[in-house]
């Protein structure tokens, strides 16, 4: 996937592009609005990550420009300015998602994948991992073609794991993913633990492999052993 990252904070840009590149994406990073406009007018991207507060203007301008050019790229606003106005304006202008800073890279990765799936007409509409198939549109999960029933939290957890296979995901990141933007309800590790345990049990019972591994105190890793 080809991604354009518009972020003026160098170390943030470096960590984001590093993380995404390791996932096999092609990431180009720019730090100003002008560079971003130059790049986006010449190249086609699958996904564009925009910071709103840029040194030479507002990231919202680039969204306007992209929409005017009828670019098909998915747009995610990644911004410290999580004021409701920015969020609403951004989404109204045609951005696909909004991720307030600070976010977890795993969360960003999951959002990019979700947008890519929604945007790609020919591409994979379902997520597959071995015997497990997830249909995000219907939020349906099958193991060896047999449907299994998951709670909302378990489903969300599974989708999160599948978007970030083979890497350690921190408990904090899982907690935030499960409770949405307004975390605090599910901040107890017990609660994540219960959801993970239940999901693992259901998958095992349905005949799937044991893919969820707890990594010391840090978090979890979804991987084929």
């Amino acid at each position: 996937m080809k991604i354009l990252l518009i972020e003026d904070e160098p170390s943030l840009a470096a960590s984001i592009s590093g993380y995404l590149a390791a996932d096999g994406h092609l990431v180009e990073s720019v730090g100003t609005l002008n560079d971003a406009l130059d790049k986006s007018s010449v190249y086609e991207y699958d996904c564009i990550l925009v910071d709103i507060g840029l040194p030479d203007g507002s990231g919202l301008d680039i969204i306007r420009q992209l929409k005017a050019d009828h670019q098909r790229a998915g747009i995610i606003i990644v911004s410290a300015k999580d004021s409701i106005d920015d969020r609403i304006t951004g989404l109204d202008l045609g951005a696909d998602d909004y991720l307030p800073k600070p976010f977890h890279l795993a969360e960003l990765n999951a959002r990019i994948r979700a947008i890519y799936r929604r945007k790609s007409f020919a591409g994979e509409r379902v997520i597959e991992f071995g015997e497990i198939t997830v249909n995000p549109t219907e939020q349906a999960v099958t193991v060896n073609s047999q449907p299994i029933k998951l709670t909302r939290s378990e489903y969300s957890l599974l989708e999160y794991f599948l978007a970030n296979p083979n890497r350690v995901i921190t408990k904090e990141s899982v907690a935030e993913h499960l409770s949405g933007d307004d975390a605090d309800l599910l901040d107890k590790i017990d609660f994540i633990y219960s959801h993970v345990k239940n999901l693992r049990k259901k998958l095992l019972e349905a005949g799937a492999g044991d893919y969820i591994r707890s990594v010391y105190g840090v978090g979890y890793k979804w991987a084929k052993t």
Binding site: D82, P100, K101, P102, F103
Partner: peptide, 13 residues
Amino acid sequence: QTPLAIIRNQIDL
């Protein structure tokens, strides 16, 4: 928010 984001991302890395 920005420094927090940086620390968080570095942990992920």
